[in-house]
Computed example of a mutant assay.
Amino acid sequence: MTGVLGRLVYALVLAAVLVASVWISFSRFILGRSLEVPDMSRLSVEEAVTLAAARGLRVVPDAARADYDEGVAAQRIRGQVPAAGTAVKAGQTVRVFLSLGPRTIRVPDLGGSRPRTAALALERAGLAAGVVSAARADGPPGIVAQGVAPGTVTTPGTPVDVLVTRGAPEVSWVMPDLIGRDFERVRLAFEARGFRLGGVRSQTYEGAAAGTILRQFPLAGYPVTLKDTLSFVVASTEGPAS
């Protein structure tokens, strides 16, 4: 009985040793044939193919997973499967994903737009409104120049400065001294130049000929523009106008 039990134990031990030996041999066989996937980040496809071939691997670009990447130049690898450092068998295919580069935007033409309209257009395009400067110039009000030329390819969030015209510069003159001048001659001269006459009152004034200007507004020496209204008090021999 003891001999049978001993032989049974011996057989079990022998079987265990055999299984362990097979497992160790199999593991060594597998590990001996495994390869480590290299890091292909930021390589071109050609560079990745050369690197992979030297290790017995293949590279296949996955066009469906190409995407914009702010940190990786266009046509460079931004990702891979299996990941770098993974143990694989010889001949394994590594799929790589290319970068389309940073996302770019074409700057819209803002010419003629008002600042608010331009700001909305820039926001819709993914850009930012920059500094708004103003100047007087001939032509209708609106944007006449922009810091980044229309059609320029740039990155999202780029600020675009603009120059806005407020219309033609306002011309002003110095109001002359018209006291004692003939009102009709003054009126014709000013109206011919586009000025508007406002209130004209008559007032008797001893020693002044009828139609002579007694008072004026604006006063002599003050600036005057075509937007201003000129007022006069004119001498009359017939008494104040009713």
Score class of each variant (00 low, 15 high):
Pro115Cys: 07
Ala134Val: 14
Arg103Glu: 09
Gly139Ser: 07
Thr117Ile: 10
Pro102Gly: 05
Val132Met: 04
Ala135Thr: 13
Leu127Arg: 01
Pro140Ala: 15
Arg106Glu: 04
Ala128Lys: 10
Asp109Asn: 13
Gly130His: 02
Arg103Asp: 02
Asp138Trp: 00
Asp138Gln: 11
Leu120Val: 14
Glu123Val: 11
Ala128Cys: 02
Arg103Tyr: 02
Ser133Ala: 11
Ala125Leu: 01
Ala129Arg: 04
Gly111His: 13
Ala134Met: 13
Pro141Lys: 15
Asp109Ala: 09
Leu122Gly: 03
Ala135Pro: 00
Gly126Val: 00
Ala134Phe: 15
Ile105Gly: 05
Ser133Glu: 14
Gly112Arg: 00
Arg114Trp: 11
Gly101Leu: 01
Gly130Ala: 11
Arg103Leu: 09
Gly130Trp: 01
Leu127Asn: 04
Ser133Thr: 12
Asp138Arg: 10
Gly142Gln: 07
Pro115Asn: 08
Pro115Phe: 06
Arg116Tyr: 10
Ala134Trp: 13
Pro115Ala: 07
Leu127Cys: 06
Val107Gln: 03
Val144Gln: 03
Thr117Trp: 12
Glu123Phe: 10
Gly130Met: 06
Pro108Tyr: 06
Arg106His: 06
Val132Leu: 04
Gly126Met: 00
Ala121Gln: 14
Ala121Gly: 07
Leu110Arg: 01
Pro115His: 07
Ser113His: 11
Pro102Phe: 02
Ala135Lys: 10
Pro140Phe: 01
Ile143Phe: 04
Ala137Tyr: 06
Arg103Thr: 04
Gly142Asp: 04
Ala137Phe: 06
Ser113Gly: 01
Leu110Ala: 09
Asp109Arg: 02
Ala137Pro: 01
Arg124Glu: 14
Gly126Phe: 00
Gly130Asn: 05
Val131Gln: 12
Ile143Pro: 03
Ala135Asn: 05
Arg116Thr: 08
Ala129Gln: 10
Ile105Pro: 00
Pro108Trp: 09
Leu110Gln: 05
Ala128Ser: 10
Pro141Phe: 12
Arg116Asn: 08
Ala125Ser: 12
Val144Asn: 04
Glu123Asp: 09
Arg124Met: 08
Ser133Pro: 12
